[in-house]
């Protein structure tokens, strides 16, 4: 019999109590135990960024993180980015700029971009490029993604001013 470890995870504001083999990665648990398939599995070696989630607001490769290590932290997946059915400005900008082609890298890209804008609301193009350097995209050539992130930053700044 496998030794199962009870763990407690906070994902997108919801808490989940589950029992898993201790070697399970956060990626596996999100996809297979919690059914949160928005987090994508592509290289499993931390090289492509598709599985990126936010851990206390910081982007991490969920394929390289054991689920047990994510306990006690706030985990944000792509499913938690839109609130009450309203897209986050980043998601809206991704849609409108054509930043999504096949869409497999999009959740990781969007979360990396959110982490960037949370710490730097007005990034230069160069800063945007460096923020997504760990995220491979084979469809877009990154241009529409970069434009979307910068446009979202501008949009969020406009909203802040209005508020």
């Amino acid at each position: 019999m496998k030794q199962l470890l009870p763990i407690s995870l906070n994902v997108n504001g919801d808490s989940y109590d589950i029992a898993i083999p201790p070697w399970r990665t956060l990626l596996e648990v999100l996809r297979e135990n919690l059914g949160l398939t928005g987090t994508k599995k592509s290289c499993l070696e931390g090289q492509c960024g598709a599985c990126t989630v936010l851990l206390d607001g910081k982007p991490v490769n969920s394929c390289l993180l054991l689920a047990v290590e994510a306990q006690g932290k706030e985990i944000t997946t792509i499913e938690g980015l839109a609130r009450d059915g309203v897209l986050h400005p980043l998601q809206k900008a991704f849609v409108e700029h054509g930043a999504i082609q096949c869409g497999f890298c999009s959740p990781g890209m969007a979360l990396a971009a959110k982490a960037l804008l949370d710490r730097n609301p007005n990034p230069s193009e160069d800063e945007v490029r460096h923020a997504i350097v760990g995220h491979l995209c084979r469809c877009t050539g990154y241009f529409q993604i970069i434009e979307a992130i910068r446009d979202a930053a501008a949009e969020m700044a406009r909203k802040d001013v209005q508020a």
């Binding site: 949160l36 928005g38 849609v95 999009s106």
Partner: peptide
């Protein structure tokens, strides 16, 4: 498909 993909696909 963009809306679906950007919310998780």
């Amino acid at each position: 498909d963009a809306y679906d993909k950007v919310t998780g696909g």
